[in-house]
Design a protein around this nucleic acid. Structure first.
Lengths: 377, 377
DNA sequence: TTGAAAGCGGTACCAC
DNA sequence: GTGGTACCGCTTTCAA
């Protein structure tokens, strides 16, 4: 490759000079445009190689008015869900020769707007955004005229904003979870959700509909708050301290899980027995928890991939687009068990379904527990 | 803000025209350079506001020869360790007005080199890299003359490469873990590590030294391989199938944990009793595992923060720099217990240390288990 | 203080 | 086919 020295120092005219050709020819050859004689092409290529020349993407972008870069605005890359989305998006984008500018909003709506502004200044060709809110005026104002294709994940905005959507079908997964719990005899189910964004609304609607379909008058509670470990802990603590505590809790966000587990462990509760727990969105090791955490799953990498694909398609040829819908599904695991007071009947049916879907089989685990007991801890 | 229409359309000359001033004045005012009369400043500001003008970062970068952007090359953002590093780096960089170009190498050395090339083309002002290998010729060649400050995390390269280093003290944490296990009576300890990079070498050296210091002739095994779930599973499976299986395993990377746990659960083993397990680098929920997973910890966010700080400092004024060392520490938890055959003596000492450091107290958990038994599952 | 003009490193149109 | 040249949008001397 290059001989040595600072790489940035060699420009296109150095290549032209060395090759003894015009600057325009170098550009043509290196851009892969047709219409250059083989010999000229050779000389240019050779000169470029000798100097270790690399075109300056800034200058190219300035002229071409396209940077082959896109901006990603998320709340927190530390959340495995977001990380998977970014990872999925990165995979398809990098393969298409696009780079990703990653920003963090920390879930603050005003920061969303700022980050988008910054990315637009940097002339990204498109944006993938997971806004903290759907109705933040500043964010909406910025989005209204981004000037480049915009893909939103799991958010819906007023028609006025020309965005494209990739949405998870939260209604289905949470609905299934709720029906599962109802079938298991639970009559006091609590749903903990975050702020009023699409996933929250879908989840609330799902449990409400499930309750209604079961012909149950009430017993459902919805706790609104923020999706944080602290809120998860506080919410579950509060619920369990109530006079009529729920027998099952559905967590509308994996950020709540650790907080909830803190309370559960602190109180010495056994999940699936004393309390049933369902979490939305998988977390590493959740299936290795004892018992495994029943989860409303989705393919989060796919979420990112699809968002990237939609974006690339729009960059290639802008226009309208149908929202992309991706499924979610409920994976019953040990933490979702029969209601404490339920009759033996429904319990049995439950058990069998559980055994089938648990990643960690019940038998060896219980065997281990027994052995442990014998080993005389 | 802006009236409407595509934002990118308004350039500096439009502002100049509207304000009735020269183009240079607009630049000066908007760049915050002194020496403009108040009235001119006002008119420029007003015009810019009216048009919703935002400077084109590409053009600025081209002229200024600095883009206030840095490149990050990691292996897999899906790994919570990497995600934390990125998150930490992003926090300090965005506050300093820098953007991050995120790339993924998927742990493939040749991709590292490609990604760095791409980022350099985009004229990043600096790089934070976690190379897959330390001796990949292509990567070294590229790094040799990046032309911008380069910070490496947890890797060391030949002197020839002008890089800056942020390193974790793996030796300490793993050494403590190993000594802990030895004190608990373990005499056959296995260490599973990845490829030959600094953390691997440090960890191997740590256990070797611990063994030597204890005056033990042998019993230590080191398994080299790749840091993947599959390898974790295969390695542990193989070890446990041996005629003299280890009584304790140290996993040199959190990617191995899930694989290891699969084997453990499949075989119905009880961690901390049948087999002791220590994992390097924390994973969500690992302390909620039953028993909690003993872990060699480190502040991964800090790792990213420091890397970013070093990079910013070097961008501000390039030069030599001392490597930054960050600590690691062993957090004993339930999964690291006494060796199966050990005498009661050392066991006792162990227990008390464990109880103190376990995030989840042993008592309520066992109580829960008992209750479960009574509930007649 | 302010503005004209020369680039930064490319691209692409337009003659030759 | 090939090369001159006018920009892209902005910063920065340099004169006025």
């Amino acid at each position: 490759m290059s001989k040595d020295g600072a790489r940035t120092r060699t420009g296109i005219k150095a290549v032209a000079a060395l090759a003894g050709v015009g600057i325009a020819s170098v550009s043509r050859v290196l851009s892969g445009q047709p219409g250059s004689s083989p010999q000229l092409t050779q000389r240019v290529l050779e000169a470029a190689r000798q100097l270790g020349y690399t075109p300056n993407a800034l200058a190219q972008g300035l002229r071409r008015k396209t940077t082959r870069s896109i901006g990603f605005v998320g709340s927190d890359i530390t959340n495995p869900l977001i990380a998977s989305i970014v990872s999925g998006a990165e995979a398809v984008l990098s393969q298409a020769g696009f780079s990703i500018l990653l920003t963090n909003s920390a879930g603050v709506a005003s920061v969303d707007a700022e980050r988008i502004e910054t990315l637009l200044q940097r002339q990204v060709d498109g944006l993938i955004v997971l806004p903290a809110l759907e109705d933040d005026p500043a964010t909406l104002a910025v989005m209204r005229n981004v000037g480049v294709p915009l893909v939103l994940i799991d958010r819906t905005l007023p028609e006025a904003v020309p965005a494209h959507y990739v949405l998870s079908d939260h209604y289905r997964g949470v609905g299934d979870a709720c029906r599962y719990l109802l079938a298991a005899g639970h009559r006091r189910i609590a749903l903990v959700v975050g702020r009023d964004v699409r996933p929250t609304r879908e989840r609330v609607r799902a449990v409400e509909d499930a309750y209604a379909a079961a012909g149950l008058p009430d017993g459902l509670r919805v706790h609104h708050g923020t999706l944080t470990l602290a809120h998860g802990e506080a919410a579950v603590e509060e619920m369990l301290s109530a006079s009529q505590p729920p027998t099952a809790v559905i967590l509308g966000g994996n950020q709540l899980l650790e907080g909830a587990l803190r309370v559960v462990h602190r109180r010495g509760l056994t999940l699936g027995v004393d309390l049933s727990l369902v979490c939305c969105d998988d977390v590493p090791l959740s299936r290795f928890h004892q018992p495994p955490i029943a989860t409303v799953m989705r393919d989060s990498t796919q979420l990112g991939r699809r968002a990237a694909e939609v974006l690339l398609a729009q960059i290639a040829s802008p226009g309208e687009s149908e929202p992309v819908h991706l499924e979610t599904w409920f994976e019953p695991r040990g933490s979702a068990g029969a209601a404490p007071t339920s009759a033996p009947g429904p319990v049995k049916g439950l058990r069998s379904r559980q055994a089938r879907s648990d990643a960690v089989k019940a038998t060896p685990a219980s065997a281990a527990r027994q052995r442990k007991r014998q080993s005389g801890t």
